[in-house]
Each structure stands twice: as C-alpha cells, then as structure tokens.
C-alpha cells in the first residue's frame, strides 16, 4: 500500500481536495438538469474507463461496447419486471452474462489482427441490436422489440434503485467510477498489466517469452464487459426508459471509443479527461443548436478526434500532463526540489 501512496505531496493534496469537492457537489448544485449533466459526464467516464481495459491495455479496438451496456440494462430490467428482483442483483447477473458473451467473442478474435477484432465487435454490437429490435419476448421475459422498455415507477428506496432526487444517482455512479479507476490502477501495476503492455506492443516477442498474450487479453475483455454491463443497469435505472437504438446503437459504441481515444487510451485519467471535455460539448450543442443542425456534436467529435490523433496519437492526456507538471507541480513544490517531476507520473 505504501508503494501506492508514495506520490508527490502536491498531487496527493490535490487529489484529496478534488475528491472532497466531488462528494460535496450535490450540496451546492440543486438544479436537476445540471445534476443530470454531471451524472452523464461521470457515467461516460465510467463507460470509457471500462472500455479502456480492452481498448487501452489489450491494444485492440473494440467498437461494439454498446452491446454490453445493453445486455446490462436489459437483464436487470427484465428480471425486475418478471420476478421483481432488485436491480442490484440483476446488475450482477447482467455483468456475468455480458462477460460470457465477451469471452465467447474474444477467445477467437483476440488472437487475430486488430482489424478483425474491430470488425467482429461491430458485427456483434449491431447483431445484438437487430436481435433485440426483432424479438418481442423470450420465454417469460418481455423485451418489446424496437419500442423498448420502461421501468415502472416505485417508491424511493435503495433496493429498488429508484430515487426522488438526483443526488443518490450521482453518488452511486461516482463511487462506481472511483472503484473502476482504482481497479485500473491496480491492474496496470500487476502482472496482467505488464503482460498486456508487452503483448500490446509486440505480441510475437511477448509470446516468445512465454506469455500467453491472448489469454490475458481475454481476461481483460471479461473484466471490461462485466463492468460495462453494470453501467448499463445504472443507465436503465437513471433513465427509466430505453430502446435498442438508444442503448445498443453504433453511436453509443463509437462515442465511448472516441472519448477514450481523444482523452488517451491506456491511461488512468485519459478516459475521465475525455468525458470531461466531450460530454459537455455534446450536451450543450444538443440543447442549444440541436434542432437546427442535427449531428453537429458528432461532426465536432470527429474533427477533434482527427486533429488529436494527428498531433497527440496518445491522447490529450499527454499535453495536459505536461502543462500540469509545468504550471502546478513546479510552482507548488519549489520549496522542495527533491520532489521532482519524476514522481508525478500519475497520469500514466
């Protein structure tokens, strides 16, 4: 544990301050609309962080993560509707289902060139969407095809995963995000993380050293799908209504991938940075000019993606880290030059 706390004191203090601010935010912000935007930013940061386990560390490009969001949302919701099961249990069931699907896809395709994996994930994502749009019911479970499912309102309680105010949703997703970020941190500093890093860069060389690269990639895939599905259940409970196009579409898959890529894949803070920068763009364009120019926010996303990939292929986390080091760390740690820049690589 000591190893993990051995950070630059400035970074440590800033982190604690930031966390405190995040936890106190609902006391200050009372507008539900604003709160909803904060929740969505954190939710997208969550999705991209879970995407990061495969897209970032396994060195491949998954473009169908909406499938797992959808599996999570549908599983918990049909279990709630049919058996009255608490979404918290349905969440876990959905996560397990999603990771089974992910492993089935990954076991074969993760051995192939990355292009094949990207194509396979698109096909799976779209295939699952078409399936859900065509099926009205499976046995006792009602899916309702393209019209989607709405979750019946119930009383304000933790077991029912429904609340009158936005604040509980905010705390739940914030804690989920922090857990995933911690998991990412531990994974990067574990054996699996090192194996994946080696396998992502030079699979042949890593295999020659006796690392079963594709096995670790499949493990990463299983973790990623499980966590993504948990987010799907959260999305379902937050919105209380969803349909295949909204939750299983290519647009969601791409938005998740784009945010991670722009922020910086394979880093802890990259996905969070990406969501922080891009979600408000899409919310604001949708609110203010959405009707006049549909699709504007996706044009902006695409352009930002192209420019960022041109100048910072590793994501915006790289220049932000440099600026952060230059302007904040250096200024605040002048008294103690021994705590140099070397110990500030938190963003890596």
């Amino acid at each position: 544990m000591k190893k993990y706390l051995n950070q630059n004191p400035v970074v440590l203090k800033l982190t604690i301050l930031l966390l405190a601010a995040l936890f106190l935010l609902p006391l200050v912000v009372t507008s539900p609309t604003l709160m909803q935007i904060f929740i969505l930013v954190i939710l997208y940061a969550y999705f991209t962080s879970t995407w990061n386990f495969v897209g970032g560390f396994a060195g491949v490009l998954p473009l169908g993560h909406a499938a797992f969001v959808g599996i999570g949302a549908y599983t918990s919701t049909v279990l709630l509707q049919t058996y009255g099961l608490s979404p918290w249990i349905g969440m876990i069931v959905g996560g397990i289902l999603a990771s089974i699907v992910g492993v089935i896809i990954g076991i074969r395709t993760l051995k192939l060139r990355g292009a094949y994996f990207a194509l396979a994930t698109i096909a799976i994502g779209e295939g699952i969407r078409v399936l859900f749009e065509n099926v009205k019911e499976v046995g006792p479970f009602k899916i309702n095809g393209p019209s989607g499912i709405s979750i019946p309102l119930s009383e304000n309680s933790f077991t029912a995963f429904q609340f009158d105010t936005k604040a509980p949703y905010y705390y739940i997703i914030l804690i989920m995000l922090l857990v995933v970020l911690l998991l990412t941190y531990f994974m990067m500093n574990s054996k699996i993380g090192y194996y994946l890093a080696a396998g992502g860069e030079e699979p042949e060389a890593a295999e020659a050293l006796g690392i079963k690269v594709s096995r670790y990639k499949v493990i990463a895939m299983a973790i990623s799908c499980f966590l993504t599905a948990l987010g799907g259940t959260f999305y379902a409970q937050l919105m209380l209504y969803f349909y295949p196009k909204s939750i299983l579409g290519l647009d969601l898959s791409y938005e998740i991938a784009f945010i991670a890529l722009i922020g910086g894949r394979g880093t802890i803070l990259g996905p969070v940075l990406g969501a922080l920068l891009l979600r408000p763009v899409s919310e604001l364009t949708r609110i203010y000019i959405g009707d006049m120019l549909p699709g504007l926010h996706l044009v902006i996303f695409g352009l930002i993606l192209i420019v960022v990939m041109r100048y910072y292929p590793k994501g915006l986390v790289v220049p932000v880290k440099i600026l952060f080091n230059r302007h904040i760390i250096d200024r605040f740690s002048k008294q103690d030059p021994s705590n140099g820049i070397t110990s500030t690589d938190k963003a890596d």
Partner: peptide, 9 residues
C-alpha cells in the same frame, strides 16, 4: 481510428 473519425464527420 482516424478513418472512423472521417466517417462520423
């Protein structure tokens, strides 16, 4: 990744 960006644009 860039070609997907071009697609979206």
């Amino acid at each position: 990744i860039v070609t997907t960006g071009i697609w979206y644009v």
